[in-house]
């Protein structure tokens, strides 16, 4: 690490302390710290990984290894609204594929891409554990269930 590398600091150091104090070993605090950092920054930069590595006394590469494993941890900025459409069987049987096609057509993006204005990212995800109210789209932290193309359109129009 050189002095020119970008640095990351947590906004709320007391929360960091609190999280680490919950666990019998520091390394177990990695996922909650990553969640906290991502809620502050929007994604996990290498600066975040270095800061967390120091906090839990691990190598930055070990943190990077963890980060790369989980689909909810992003190493790049996402759109303001991340449209995570479930594509697994129960949702697919209830119209999820049509929702994906509709979003692609309406906003001119493919799954994995972000609109030019940075408003929407489209992500195909696997079963969200809400199959009884399929199809399901998770937008950032919130679930939206039992959607149709019409109700999805309304929902997306209402997002600012």
């Amino acid at each position: 690490m050189t002095n020119n590398d970008p640095k990351f600091e947590f906004d709320k150091p007391e929360m960091v302390e609190n999280i680490i104090s919950h666990y019998p070993d520091k390394r177990s605090a990695v996922l909650p710290l990553l969640h906290l950092a991502q809620s502050q920054e929007g994604f996990i930069s290498s600066a975040v990984m270095r800061t967390i590595a120091q906090l839990v006394e691990a190598a930055p590469a070990e943190i990077a290894d963890t980060v790369s494993f989980y689909t909810m941890l992003y190493t790049e900025p996402q759109g303001k609204f991340n449209l995570q459409v479930c594509q697994t069987l129960s949702c697919s049987l209830n119209g999820a594929d049509e929702l994906v096609d509709h979003i692609c057509g309406e906003y001119k993006i493919n799954p994995g891409e972000t609109t030019e204005d940075g408003k929407f990212t489209l992500t195909k995800v696997e079963c969200l554990g809400a199959c009884g109210t399929a199809p399901v789209v998770q937008i950032n932290n919130d679930y939206h269930e039992g959607l149709s193309i019409e109700s999805l359109d309304k929902l997306l129009d209402s997002l600012e």
Binding site: V30, L31, L73, C127
Partner: peptide, 27 residues
Amino acid sequence: VVIHRGAGAYICGEETGLLESLEGKRG
């Protein structure tokens, strides 16, 4: 009792994958 959030990985439902994940590693 501590509530610990996963981060998107089906395999972390398998109990030993879960424990690895709880320890801050890949599941």
